[in-house]
Amino acid sequence: MSEWKRICAVSDVPVLGSRVVHSEDEGRIALFRNSADQVFAVRDRCPHKGGPLSQGLVHGTTVTCPLHSWKIQLDDGQVVPPDVGCVKPFPVKVENGEVFLSL
């Protein structure tokens, strides 16, 4: 079923920034890299009103949505309280500086 797909090099994603990945089956996925070089992937749709999370500001392991500033945890897709909701996280792994997504 799901398989690991090579996406890009870690260095293709800006530190504290993101890239948008488009998958046939899953649509837009936001790929993030934080200051500790951890890489995360979640669906690029804010649970609030569908804002593109990839365009938000990354801090710690969280992204702030660019539209109305909800905060979303990147590791599990949970929205930081007091707001509620979640977004689908995708498994990611990094091997030899390459990012793989399980789709």
Binding site: I7, G17, S18
Partner: peptide, 10 residues
């Protein structure tokens, strides 16, 4: 910074 405008297709 230019690459932020490009989408990665898989």
């Amino acid at each position: 910074h230019k690459r932020q405008f490009e989408i990665i297709k898989v």
